[in-house]
Design a protein around this nucleic acid. Structure first.
Lengths: 135, 135
DNA sequence: TAGTTGATGATAATTATTATTTAATCTTGA
DNA sequence: TCAAGATTAAATAATAATTATCATCAACTA
């Protein structure tokens, strides 16, 4: 007797949420994603977006990135990489800086925490906001 | 004619908020700090704590650390250093890992953002939570 | 000392998220 | 195919964290 596999159904809503998230290189918040998905599924509820993002993050299909700013953001790419956040508009992008694996080892030496991982977040001003400030 | 210096008054509330924040090595949230400050100033308002933390962070007296987790946290130490957050209880501590200055240079090469800084956040389980889980 | 400005405390409003409820949809076995 | 049961969705309510508003009070200035 196997534990009754909880078996997650691939519903239209889930499929489209995942598709829309995979489309973009930035990392939308739940409500940004809600706006994107609504263009294809106008009757979807915001709760559905939240619930399914949370579900997919728990099962490892997507990444929940809790970086600076007040809102959680989501990422369809799950390999380890770093992010940069615009301090003006709050947008979050991937940044192509090699992951520094040694950091975790270094940290382990100086702390009583059991280390699970690390994340680097750069802050800066994106090109759009730079142009707007230059005016 | 100098621009009229906005002159920030050092009120009792501000003084005590800063004192309490400086006392601890962890990085309290606004409402944790509110509880601490209330022991000395029982009639202080939560809004005052929020307002002044924000003010002091803007003027560089303290550091606002917006890392993972839902709440903002504050730090009386403003020199550059990294943090570790317990994924069980949410507590945030300093961690004594040397700052990797090269990261900013590396990032600058691969992005169109104007880079302002970076921050490393480790996640792990603090010793208290480790013991509780072991039971 | 009167008037102006800035700060506080109380409270209301907002924002982001999570939980609950009800209804719809899918799955499976008779 | 149909009914029973499970899963999901949408709508809505509830909660948590933060920010805004505002009447009042205190501090500084002319």
């Amino acid at each position: 007797m196997n534990a009754p596999a909880p078996m997650i159904r691939l519903t239209t809503q889930r499929q489209i949420i995942l598709e829309e998230l995979s489309k973009v290189k930035t990392h939308p918040t739940a409500s940004e994603l809600y706006d994107m998905v609504r263009k294809r599924l106008p009757r979807i509820g915001l709760g559905t977006v939240y619930r399914n993002l949370e579900l997919m993050a728990d099962s490892g299909v997507i990444l929940k990135i809790e970086v600076g700013g007040t809102q959680k953001r989501f990422d369809a790419t799950t390999d380890e990489h770093y992010h940069i956040r615009c301090s003006v508009c709050g947008k979050v992008d991937d940044i192509d800086v090699p992951v520094v694996k040694e950091l975790v080892a270094q940290a382990a030496e100086t702390t009583s925490y059991l280390i699970m991982g690390h994340h680097v977040e750069f802050t800066g001003i994106c090109s759009t906001c730079q142009q707007q400030q230059a005016q």
